[in-house]
Design a protein around this nucleic acid. Structure first.
Lengths: 328, 328
DNA sequence: CTGAAAGCGCTAACAG
DNA sequence: CTGTTAGCGCTTTCAG
């Protein structure tokens, strides 16, 4: 089908091996007559030769492919994360096989299997699937499959945002503006610890502030429902911190449906600091992650682990900060 | 490193070939003693055997991987397209290698090369990179690499939305509501024909309506700039149709910045009918694509082309329709 | 019913 | 300086 090294070798009158060397090694490190080298390149060009990564992968035992597992990419933040992974991976010479799990625990495990079947060199876990006890967990730990989690983890190497600085800035800002009754809306479906929440709690305590918690599903529709309900019944918070900008948009829609105005009737602070938040009406005040740095750190860590499987499980932490826009 | 067929074969006391058969063929089609078959499965389980897709790919000449090339995935519509491709591909037994090009023509071509190197079985082109004259174009056409474009194309198999029905419904709706001065905001950077625009023009003509055109970059910031400028100076349109919901959000932000209200001062109609548009303030009236059907069609067409390279270049067309929400 | 052997396209030693 | 050889892990004939 496609043209192979052998085709070139035949035409030039040398062996595959020679062609392989000439084409792949640094010109200095391979000793060959200038005539032959020229001819090889010329014939490769003529024949439109394209090296097969799959053959190379087989022999090298590496695919130069990273697996990326995301719960979903419909929110601007997750789309940004995905894009950055793609960019950073490429910068390190890797391709990425993307799998989205729709936040289903079962599907996450299936996708993990798929990535292993494909022999990706490492896995970036954007959805927190891996718990001890599953076959996949055992496999990955026992085989030392390089893996880094996007988010905090005790068990694996990971890259996560440190929410404390951002939360501190936020409470500082809010209290100075006269807000004092803090609400926190988050989704509780994953079954995993919400470290963001823990940080917020801690910081609230430091400020001597109570925290009223709300939960809903991590989709816009349910956040909107929650917003409507809040508007109809709640007399508590004067500011709502929402787990993500994405969820904040849903929540705000619910508020509007009931005639509430943001920030006049209720201030809203999102999380993630997505670019898109700036274009919402009103623009969303948000505790921003430094995604670029975070993902760069994650990918580089993963690549390092691929290069040397004995590198200790590091944790990359990146500070957050408050971006004040219009919603608070 | 990983456990191979040979490892299993050794332990069971048969050959690789036998193990391969037993593990991969339908139980009915392979004649083997029940004892051996049991043992093979058992040992495979014990050893945590995971077949290597790369070895299989090499011998089969197929990778069971589709390449997906997108300009970007930050807009809700493109994220949805990507997600659907992932889903449909999986349904057909394919994985997907995603590449995003940031809408750069050069990068599109590089990514195309990368996908070919990786020997993807087929390519889904979400960003319109391929023009005759490029090396990649020659390669793909001459090698008959299965490819389907997302969007209309004369040269390649493609799946596209037919905007006429949606546009017709829209103009019908708008004129009945008393709007008559139609504007169309789109980005003109790609250098490719905007078939949406052509359909709109044609339908406007049928309605005896003039169409005033505006152009800007396809990012929210520039759309906002355009919105502000419109608000300050324009006395024309009473309704603006915008090329995408994503761009519409940016444009509306610009309008708000100048104190205009939607739809009171200017009605806005987006395109794509993204779910996210429903949660915007105000919710975006939009000409919706039926993404699910479109992508399903595209992937199935591609898979069919992979199975049989002689299948004629078909075009899949899916009708659009107006979704009335709050912005018009 | 099962085993042996060849080969997918490429790389890496080691000979010549 | 270049060629030969031996695999990487799997599938697929073809013998036995």
């Amino acid at each position: 089908m496609a043209v192979t090294l052998a085709d070139i070798a035949d035409r030039v009158g040398v062996t595959q091996a020679t062609v392989s060397m000439v084409l792949n090694k640094a010109p200095s490190s391979v000793r060959i007559s200038e005539r032959t080298r020229q001819k090889i390149f010329q014939v490769a060009e003529e024949l439109n030769y394209t090296p097969s990564f799959v053959a190379r992968s087989l022999v090298k035992g590496r695919t130069f492919t990273l697996g990326l597992l995301m719960g979903g990419i419909e929110s601007a933040h997750h789309a940004e994360v995905t894009t950055l992974v793609l960019e950073e991976a490429e910068a390190c010479g890797y391709r990425v096989l993307l799998a989205v799990t729709e936040w289903s625990h079962e599907k996450e495990l299936e996708c993990l299997d798929m990535l292993v079947h494909h022999r990706v060199d490492g896995i970036l876990l954007g959805s927190h699937a891996l718990r001890s006890g599953t076959r996949q967990y055992e496999y990955i730990t026992s085989q030392h499959v390089p893996i880094v989690l996007l988010g905090y983890s005790e068990e694996f190497a990971c890259a996560y945002s440190d929410w404390k600085p951002g939360m501190t800035q936020t409470l500082d800002f809010l209290t100075k503006k006269g807000y004092s009754r803090i609400g926190y809306l988050h989704s509780d479906t994953s079954g995993f610890t919400d470290f963001k929440q823990m940080d917020l709690k801690e910081v609230c305590q430091r400020f001597g502030l109570a925290l009223k918690q709300y939960t809903c599903e991590p989709n816009q529709a349910d956040c909107a429902r929650c917003g409507r309900q809040f508007a109809r019944t709640d007399q508590g918070p004067d500011v709502m911190i929402v787990q993500s900008d994405f969820m904040a948009t849903g929540f705000m829609r619910g508020l509007y449906d009931q005639g509430l105005q943001v920030p006049r009737d209720l201030a809203v602070v999102g999380c993630d600091g997505t670019n898109a938040g700036e274009f919402f009406v009103p623009p969303i005040t948000s505790i921003a992650q430094d995604c670029r740095v975070l993902i760069k750190g994650a990918v580089e860590l993963l690549v390092e682990m691929i290069g040397n499987r004995n590198v200790p499980k590091r944790k990359v932490s990146v500070a957050t900060r408050l971006i004040v826009r219009g919603s608070a």
